[in-house]
Design a binder for these strands. Structure first.
Lengths: 110, 110
DNA sequence: TAAGTTAGTTACTTATTGTAAGTAATTATA
DNA sequence: TATAATTACTTACAATAAGTAACTAACTTA
């Protein structure tokens, strides 16, 4: 079971992109380096999960974490080259959504 | 809480694409119309969830379900125009994975 | 000393998935 | 005729992931 016939690299890419919230986190970071609380507020993710996702994305080499020892401490998250390379993809999704999703529908909660 | 500042249409698109398995189901259907059990085997999804996803995707107008009253009954799932319009996106993901993911790494179960 | 920052973490609840067995409709086989 | 097979699901239950809210650490300011 669970032995798929699909290219493992594609599958891996999908597993990154299709993990809940990762897409939005990356999209948000396209606006530039940001701190934890900014991302949290911008996309409406819970701190618990954001913390988890940022760690995963750092592991994948998609996100970079930088500490600025100011007061209070400032920690900035930004995209690496690998992360930035996802920009065209994000733009495609944006374009698709504008072409194929009805504005009214899109806003309604489930 | 949970009031994001991101464009609702983009968010909706993301919520479709980033739902577990939907990407792989769509990708698989790019190969042409297929029956339930074929998709199931191809991507390694459980029947329970596949059934759920296909219903969702049909709702979204991305997938079409057709019944052929043969024996045993044949039911084919295929992409609608809206579904097919996701093809360039899928190809981009494929390309990205080939450029940025290490083949060894990608295969390892985490 | 108390209260305010930011960036998390922890404990606990709720939601989503996975697993495996079961069902319905029909035909083939012993 | 009873049993088995096939496909496309559904159901019940266990396991994993996400949401919520309170809490911590390491400062600084009032």
């Amino acid at each position: 079971m669970n032995k798929s016939l699909i290219c493992p690299r594609f599958e891996k890419a999908m597993s990154i992109i299709s993990q809940r919230w990762t897409g939005l986190v990356i999209y948000q970071l396209l606006h530039g380096p940001q701190r934890f609380s900014t991302i949290e507020a911008a996309i409406g993710i819970s701190g618990r999960v954001l913390s988890e996702r940022l760690k995963d994305l750092e592991q994948e080499g998609i996100v970079k974490r930088e500490v600025f020892p100011e007061t209070p401490v400032r920690i900035e998250y930004s995209l690496t080259d690998k992360g930035l390379s996802l920009k065209p993809l994000m733009k495609d999704i944006e374009k698709w959504s504008q072409t194929w999703l009805d504005p009214v529908d899109a806003g309604s909660d489930k």
